[in-house]
Design a protein around this nucleic acid. Structure first.
Lengths: 205, 205
DNA sequence: CATAATTGTCACCTTGCAGTTACATTAAGC
DNA sequence: GCTTAATGTAACTGCAAGGTGACAATTATG
């Protein structure tokens, strides 16, 4: 029994227990008791170290922020070899799709967002809103787009669609005849985005 | 006190209490006690008449089905004056948007769907999946579209986006800089859809 | 109007959760 | 070893939920 006292380590265990429960059982199973149990730690510590659930969620929220990376990655791509706008947009949308698809914890948090008025959940929303705006601004600054192209609306609609389908894919596998869990389905969705953007570019010439 | 014993009436009261709570407080507040209270009736009746919550939800689910109307409405439009495909698609997408936007109970049910594994909720999903397929098939049967147009993917992506933004608009008012609760925001989204479809038509000629 | 079937009410039980307190144990570091 | 910080235990309150069984009220029907 290599038992050891380490406050920071214990805090980390609690924070990651939140993620584990989200991953394994979903946000509806989150609670003082389940988290303490999962962390293998006494529930009083949540009050002592985080001042309760809210505080713990707060720290958890700060511990994951997968969208801010995308912005810098995309900026690197532009700086190396500036691709045409439709290609660039595709990089952005497939990055977003990949992030949500490959991060089940994030997906669960996004499901949580939808049903919760929880103040901690606001942190995510704000962060993601900010990251989304950053990505968009960054792209706009590097390309000259026809004024008829409402990039904000395009980004909103497409990312919303991708996110929705991604967070639904844990429960349903077909949406309107598209196998949203399969690679085939995802390709088809991305392909629509590509053609849309190309089409809008052509149409606005 | 014109008290009267009326089983059917009481059942109706219980069923519509579900909708009222969804509307006023959200699905998280649904429960035996809250429903009985809202209906002004004793909770035992839920067990006697519906065999518990599941049975009541079942009946509630059957009582609302707003998407199947759209299909026939759209078919009427086609039969009267067959508009060009992009216009027609716009009718479809704005109908879908309007249905979710103007039916707060439906919107709440959709939020519920996302977070619940509740078997009753599946009823909605299946109904909507079916309605969506119907709409698509109907449109396809009236128009000749370029084979490169993946209508199923287009419909999935755009409706998913519209639905997601609509069900988020109760908590957030800006998404990627778009005021999703305002008419302005909605117009911009629909406008993107329109231009996308037009662009894809042109590009595939 | 008496009786039985229908419909409704009430009190109660159990469970699980959040949150708190007082106290006990264990390890770390000087 | 002694002190202090870190962790654990247990017991308790309070609450809201799901669920049930005994009983009361009402109506219909003979």
């Amino acid at each position: 029994m290599g038992k050891t006292y380490n406050k920071d380590e214990t805090k980390k265990k609690l924070i990651s227990a939140v993620g584990e429960i989200l991953l394994e059982d979903g946000f509806s199973e989150l609670g003082i008791n389940s988290i303490a149990k999962k962390a293998g730690v006494n529930k009083v510590l949540i009050y002592r170290y985080f001042d309760g659930l809210e505080g713990l969620y707060q720290k958890f929220a700060e511990s994951i922020d997968p969208f801010n990376k995308i912005s810098s990655e995309l900026e690197n791509i532009i700086k190396k070899n500036k691709p045409a706008f439709p290609e660039m947009a595709m990089f952005a949308f497939s990055s977003i799709m990949a992030v949500v698809d490959n991060n089940e914890i994030l997906a669960e948090v996004m499901r949580w967002e939808i049903s919760s008025t929880n103040s901690i959940i606001r942190i995510f929303e704000e962060k993601r809103e900010e990251s989304g705006m950053n990505i968009m601004r960054m792209i706009v600054s590097h390309y000259e787009l026809p004024p008829s192209m409402d990039l904000a609306a395009i980004a909103s609609l497409f990312t919303a669609g991708l996110i929705y389908l991604s967070i639904r894919s844990n429960r349903i596998d077909m949406y309107n005849g598209i196998p949203i869990r399969e690679d085939e389905g995802k390709e088809r969705l991305l392909s629509v985005i590509k053609k849309s953007i190309e089409g809008m570019m052509i149409a606005s010439e």
